[in-house]
Amino acid sequence: MNLTSDNSITWRYAKQQVFFNIVRLAALLISAALGGLLLFIIASGIQAISWDFITLPPRDSMTKGGIMPAIVGTFYLTLGAIAIALPLGVASAIYLSEYARQGTIVRIIRIGVNCLAGVPSVVFGLFGLGFFVVYLKFGSSILSGALTLGILILPTIIGASEEALKAVPQTFREASLALGVSKWGTILRIVLPNALPGILTGSILGIGRAAGETAPIMFTAAAFFTAKLPESIFDEVMALPYHVYVLATAGTHIEETRSIQYGTVLVLVALVLGIDLIAIAIRSAMRKRKKW
């Protein structure tokens, strides 16, 4: 082996190291950003957290007391949004990937879904106000808010479900159809069960987004303040993100309520992470059973 080839190997190895370190740095940066954000929220919000904080309504013009109505409100809104978007999204995905003949119409529908994903959330809020609140006379309510949030997360769920359906091996479909099982039976018994973990991934993303959005519920569901808990889906509710927005910008006690603001954010993050963890646990339990 001569010197030149030795040099070139050293050089190539050095280049490789440089690139490895660049991508390593990128990954570290992302983790650091996320970690820093979480640490900051925890550090700033932890002193506000107490049993009273999560079980009592606000008092003294929201400068004291807890945030319980907002927790309940966000929980209902998120649950409602998922309950609306999941069946509709999965059904659309089944149509697009299993039934529809691939062609111009399907392409237009897909472009539509992608455009929907890119619409700013405040536009959804205005649409919800105009259509659900005013035109359908649902008023500012859980129903209007959940419907608006449901539409907002629909593209996420359709996209993830379609990917999950496509990932089910074609051989499973053929095996089932060749046994004389109908197409619908095949989708119900073979395709959907095997696509469920992927569909859940889409739902997790949707839940996170629905729980955290402020603009879509501002005009459709969220109350500035209400101490009572909702009794029907036509009631207005407080919601965590909107509560933070109100305290941080619209109140007369912005500085005094800093710790409540951070406490609320911490609760919101914990709530979303909690829901995510449940979905992830279900998904990994399902994946353990499916191997191919």
Partner: peptide, 14 residues
Amino acid sequence: RRIGMVFQKPNPFP
């Protein structure tokens, strides 16, 4: 239902 099929690659369901 009356005409069964066996494929090239074994394809049992999971």
